[in-house]
Amino acid sequence: EPLWIRPDAPSRCTWQLGRPASESPHHHTAPAKSPKILPDILKKIGDTPMVRINKIGKKFGLKCELLAKCEFFNAGGSVKDRISLRMIEDAERDGTLKPGDTIIEPTSGNTGIGLALAAAVRGYRCIIVMPEKMSSEKVDVLRALGAEIVRTPTNARFDSPESHVGVAWRLKNEIPNSHILDQYRNASNPLAHYDTTADEILQQCDGKLDMLVASVGTGGTITGIARKLKEKCPGCRIIGVDPEGSILAEPEELNQTEQTTYEVEGIGYDFIPTVLDRTVVDKWFKSNDEEAFTFARMLIAQEGLLCGGSAGSTVAVAVKAAQELQEGQRCVVILPDSVRNYMTKFLSDRWMLQKGFLKEEDLTEKKPWWWHLRVQELGLSAPLTVLPTITCGHTIEILREKGFDQAPVVDEAGVILGMVTLGNMLSSLLAGKVQPSDQVGKVIYKQFKQIRLTDTLGRLSHILEMDHFALVVHEQIQYHSTGKSSQRQMVFGVVTAIDLLNFVAAQERDQK
Rank of each mutant, 00 (worst) to 15 (best):
S427A: 10
G418N: 07
L325T: 05
Q302C: 15
V494P: 04
E265G: 01
L305V: 13
M298I: 15
G432Q: 03
M466P: 11
E327D: 13
L464G: 06
V264E: 05
L353T: 12
A497I: 12
E465G: 14
W369V: 07
T261S: 12
L460S: 07
R374D: 02
T395W: 09
D499C: 08
L299T: 05
Q259N: 14
S313W: 01
A470H: 07
D510S: 10
D242N: 04
K512P: 09
I390M: 13
V410E: 14
E258D: 12
T279V: 12
S310Y: 01
D282T: 08
L460V: 15
T274P: 05
L299Y: 02
Q302Y: 09
F492R: 15
R297S: 01
T344I: 07
I267D: 05
V420D: 04
R509Y: 09
I451Q: 06
Q476S: 07
E360G: 15
Q511H: 13
F285E: 08
S348C: 03
C307W: 06
V241G: 10
G309N: 02
E252P: 10
N502D: 15
A249K: 04
A506L: 05
R340L: 05
M466A: 10
L276N: 01
E327G: 06
K446R: 15
E244F: 05
L299N: 04
H394D: 10
N288C: 15
I398D: 09
G268A: 02
Q439E: 14
P273C: 06
L378T: 01
V332Q: 03
G458A: 13
D337Y: 03
I238G: 00
G418V: 01
F503P: 13
A470D: 02
L426N: 09
G414Q: 11
A431H: 03
D405K: 06
A292P: 03
S348H: 11
F295H: 03
D282V: 13
S437Y: 12
H462K: 13
K442E: 15
A318P: 01
V491S: 02
T496V: 08
S246Q: 03
L276C: 06
T314L: 01
A506D: 13
D337A: 04
K366T: 13
V472T: 12
T389N: 15
L306Y: 05
A318N: 01
K442N: 15
Q489G: 05
L373G: 11
V434T: 11
